[in-house]
Amino acid sequence: MIDTIKRAFPQTEINGCLETRTETEFHIYDHETEKRCYVHTDSEGIKHFTVENVSGRPVHFLAIDKCLFFDNDGPKRCDCAIFDKETFCFIEIKTTSSMTQRKKLRREAKNQLKAAVTFFRENITFTSTQIEAYVSSLIDSQTRPLNRASLIDEIEEFEEIGVILFHNNRKKFE
C-alpha cells in the first residue's frame, strides 16, 4: 500500500507527508497554528489521537491536510491517515467545549472524511483493505455525551459507502 500511495501522490515524499512507525505506541497531534498533523512519541506531549501498535510491525502515518492537500486543492479533506497492510484509517480531529459547536464540527468532520475516502478511492484501489474513519472529538469532559440515535445514523451512513465509522481518539493495530 505504501508504494501505491507514493505513486498516486508523489507529493507525499516531496512534502514529507508519509512516515513509517514501529513503536508500540505513538501519538498524533494537529498543530494549532500550522493546522497539520504530526507524530510524536513523547508521553508528555499533545495527544489528539493515540495509535497502539501491539506487534510493533510497520504502521504508516500520512499527513493529509496542509501536506498532501492544501486549502486551494478543492473540498476540505480529513487531517491524516494511518494504515498497515490490512487497514486504512482516515482521521479528522476536532476540539471544542461548546455543545452547539460540537454538532457543527461533527458534521464537518463527517464531510471531510467522506471527501477523503472518495478522493482516495478514485486514485487507489483498496483491494482486501478494510477502510475505517475516525471522528476524533476532543471535548470538554463536562459536555453531555453524544446522542446514541444520531451515532447509529452516522455509522449506518458510512456503512453504505463501505467504511466503518468510529467516534474515538485511539486505534489499536494487533
Rank of each mutant, 00 (worst) to 15 (best):
K104I: 09
F69H: 08
I5P: 13
S136G: 07
H60T: 15
D71Q: 13
T96P: 08
S97P: 05
L62M: 12
A8Y: 08
H31V: 05
Q101F: 00
P58L: 06
F69E: 09
S43Q: 12
E86G: 04
G56V: 11
K114V: 08
T95Y: 10
C37T: 10
V59K: 12
N53H: 13
N15Y: 14
R57L: 15
F119P: 00
Y29P: 02
K171L: 04
P10W: 09
K76E: 09
T20M: 08
K172E: 14
K104Y: 04
N123R: 15
V117F: 02
V163I: 11
E122V: 00
Q11R: 14
R77M: 08
T22M: 02
Y38S: 12
S150P: 01
F61A: 11
H167E: 14
F126L: 10
H27Y: 14
S43F: 09
S97V: 09
Q112A: 00
L138V: 05
G16H: 07
N111T: 11
V135C: 10
T50V: 15
A149K: 15
T100V: 09
F26Y: 04
D30W: 02
T100C: 01
F173T: 11
A149L: 13
E92I: 11
K47C: 06
L146H: 12
D71E: 14
K103F: 01
R77C: 03
T118Y: 09
V39W: 02
F83A: 07
Q142K: 15
E108D: 05
C89P: 12
N169A: 11
A149C: 05
F119T: 07
K172S: 14
S55Y: 14
P75L: 05
H48N: 15
L62V: 09
P145Q: 08
D71G: 08
H48T: 07
V54M: 13
E23Y: 01
Q112I: 03
C80A: 10
T125Y: 04
E25D: 00
T41D: 07
K110D: 01
C37L: 06
T143H: 00
K6D: 07
L68Y: 02
R102T: 02
F126I: 12
E108T: 03
E52W: 13
V135E: 07
N111M: 07
E159R: 06
T96K: 03
I161H: 02
L62P: 13
F83W: 03
V54H: 11
N123I: 03
I46Y: 02
T33Q: 12
F158K: 04
F88C: 13
I124F: 01
N111I: 05
T20N: 06
T4I: 12
H27K: 05
Q11N: 15
P10A: 08
K66P: 01
M1S: 13
S141P: 06
G162Y: 07
T143M: 12
K103P: 00
C37D: 04
I82W: 02
R57S: 15
R102G: 03
T50L: 09
